[in-house]
Computed example of a mutant assay.
Amino acid sequence: MSKKKISQVRVQSFGKKSDIIFNILVALLAFSCIFPFIFVIIISFTSEQSLLVHGYALFPKEWSLKGYTYLADLKGQILQSLFITVFVTVIGTLINVTFTSTYAYAIARPNFKYRRFFTIFALITMLFSPGMVPSYIVMTTLLHLKDTVWALILPMALSPFNIIVMRTFFKRTVPESIIESARIDGASEFRTFTKIVLPLAVPGIATISLFAALGYWNDWFNALLYIQSDNLVPLQFLLMKIQSNIDYMTQNASLSANLSGGMASIPKEATRMAMVVISTLPIACSYPFFQRYFVSGLTIGGVKE
C-alpha cells in the first residue's frame, strides 16, 4: 500500500473517531440541558414527607400526586389564567411579528429614504429605556389601558432586537433583483412583501415568533403593574401569587391552630415544582415545531455587515 493511501486511511480513521467524540460531547451537553427539567418533574411527583426526610433524589422513596392535586383544587383560577396567557401569547406574537417584519423590511430596502433614521431610532430604543415610571404613565394616563388585556400585549408589541435581526435577514436572503422584477410586473409594495418576501423569510419569521412567544408566555411584570382584575391575571403571575401565599402561610402558620393544620396538608416543595412544570412544559413542547427554522434564521439574521 502506498504512503498516500495509508495517509488517507489514517485521515478517515481520525475523522470517524473525532465524529464519535463530538457526538458524545453534544449528547452530554444536550443531556445536561434536559436533566434539570427531568429532575424537577421527579421532585413534583415526590411526597412531601420523603422530601423532608431524604431530600431531593432521582429515585424518591415515596411518590405522590399531592402537588398537582393541590393545584387541581384551584383549577378554575388556573384555567382562566391559562386562557389569558394563551390569548396574550397568540395575539401578541401575531402583532409583534407583523410590526417587526414590516418595520425591518422598510429599513432593509435601499430605496427607502429614511431607512438610516429609523434604523438608528430602533437602536436607540434598544440601548436606552425610558424607565418604569414614564412607561406606567403612558399606559395608564395617556392610553388608559390599565386593567385591560391590551396592557399585557402592547408593551411588548415591538422588539428592537428582532427588528435588527429581521433587517439583516431581509438584506441577506431576499435578492433585490426579485423585488425589482415584481415592481416591473406591476406588483404593489404590499403585494411584493406578502407574496414574495414573506415566503422567502420563513426561517426569520419563525425565529422572531419564538422569541416573541417566549417573552409573552413568561411575562408577569406587566400584570403586576397594570392588572387588578382576577379575570385578567396571566398564568405566570397567578403561579407567583400562589407561591407567595404558600410562603406567607408557612411563615405565619403558628398564628392559628387551624391554619397550622391546613399547612400540614399542603405539599410545599412538590407544589413549587409542579408549578414550574405547568409553566414550562407547554412552551417547551413548542420548540420542536420551530427547530426546523430556528437555527438557520438565527444564524443568517445575526450576521452583521
Rank of each mutant, 00 (worst) to 15 (best):
A201K: 02
A201R: 03
A201Q: 04
V202A: 12
V202S: 10
P203H: 09
P203I: 04
G204K: 09
G204D: 08
G204C: 12
I205H: 07
I205A: 05
I205S: 06
I205Q: 06
I205M: 14
A206V: 06
A206P: 11
A206R: 03
A206K: 06
A206Y: 08
T207L: 02
T207C: 13
T207M: 06
T207F: 08
I208A: 00
I208S: 00
S209R: 05
S209V: 04
L210R: 00
L210K: 01
F211N: 00
F211V: 04
F211R: 02
F211Q: 02
F211H: 02
F211E: 00
F211S: 00
F211G: 00
F211K: 04
A212W: 06
A212N: 05
A212Y: 08
A212I: 03
A212E: 05
A212D: 04
A213E: 04
A213I: 06
A213Q: 04
L214N: 14
L214T: 14
G215S: 13
G215L: 11
G215P: 12
Y216K: 08
W217Q: 01
W217A: 01
W217L: 06
N218R: 08
N218C: 08
N218M: 08
N218T: 05
N218E: 09
D219G: 05
D219M: 06
D219F: 07
W220I: 01
W220N: 02
W220C: 03
W220A: 05
F221A: 10
F221P: 09
F221N: 08
N222G: 00
A223I: 02
A223L: 07
A223Y: 01
L224E: 04
L224R: 05
L224K: 06
L224A: 07
L224P: 04
L225C: 01
L225F: 09
Y226E: 03
Y226D: 03
Y226P: 09
I227S: 01
I227E: 01
Q228G: 14
Q228W: 12
Q228E: 13
S229Q: 11
S229W: 12
S229T: 10
D230M: 10
D230E: 15
N231Q: 13
L232E: 09
L232T: 07
L232A: 10
L232S: 10
V233C: 12
V233N: 13
V233S: 10
V233H: 11
V233E: 13
P234S: 12
P234G: 13
P234V: 10
P234H: 11
P234M: 13
P234Q: 12
